[in-house]
Simulated scan of single mutants.
Amino acid sequence: MDKGTPKRSRKTMEKERRNNMKNLYSQLNSLIPNQDPSRPLPDQLDEATNYIKQLQGNVENLRQTRDGMMGVGGSQGSSSTRPGYSSNSSVQIEVNENGSALEVTLVTGLECQFVFTEAVRILHEENAEVVNASYSVAENTVFHTIHAQIGEAATSDAGARITRRLKNFEI
């Protein structure tokens, strides 16, 4: 009877291995958006591989964007610098207007925090309501993003006037 025990144990181990692999495939499948579990396993693995490669590309693009905003990885004035930003200024401002919505991006050094307060003040003076404001700090650089809505009481050129006033802070 000893001969049957190792064989049965091997069968049991193989069954457990297959079940474990099935669970792992199921977990992987659940992480991939729009994945069809009825598709053959090789197709599911190809889809997962492509999705992971896409995510890696996204991470690399975001890393390059971040480095470009911080002026890392290139000389001043190189193509790695984000458009609209001067790589040698201590305050950089970009205003994007989409109808009555404004997105103001401020890039400052730690010593220029007053620019954020002044930007919010200017927006309020021009009848723009700040909807959302956020910031992040990387080394000695602060990135502010302000989302605002131009009020109905504002004049038709309020966006251009806000942009001009904010650009006065660029150094």
Rank of each mutant, 00 (worst) to 15 (best):
M70H: 04
L62C: 09
P83H: 14
P40W: 01
N50D: 11
E111G: 14
A133D: 14
Q92D: 08
R66A: 01
Q54M: 06
N50S: 11
Q64I: 06
L41W: 04
K167R: 14
N88Q: 15
H124F: 10
S30F: 06
N58C: 14
H147D: 05
E152D: 13
C112L: 08
Q35I: 00
F143W: 09
G57N: 10
F116E: 12
A133M: 15
A133P: 05
Y25L: 15
S86P: 11
S26K: 13
Q76W: 10
R161W: 04
E16T: 02
V95I: 06
E47M: 03
N168D: 10
A133R: 08
N88C: 11
M1D: 04
D67P: 13
T12D: 10
V91H: 03
I171C: 09
G77N: 01
V115I: 13
K3H: 10
K167Y: 08
G109I: 02
Q56D: 09
N23F: 12
D67H: 13
P83Q: 14
N88V: 07
A148Q: 00
E152P: 05
L123H: 00
T141V: 13
N58M: 14
Y135S: 15
V104G: 03
N88I: 07
T145L: 11
D2I: 11
Q64S: 06
Q113P: 03
N19D: 15
A154G: 02
D2M: 12
K15C: 04
L55G: 02
G74I: 03
V115M: 02
L110V: 05
K53V: 00
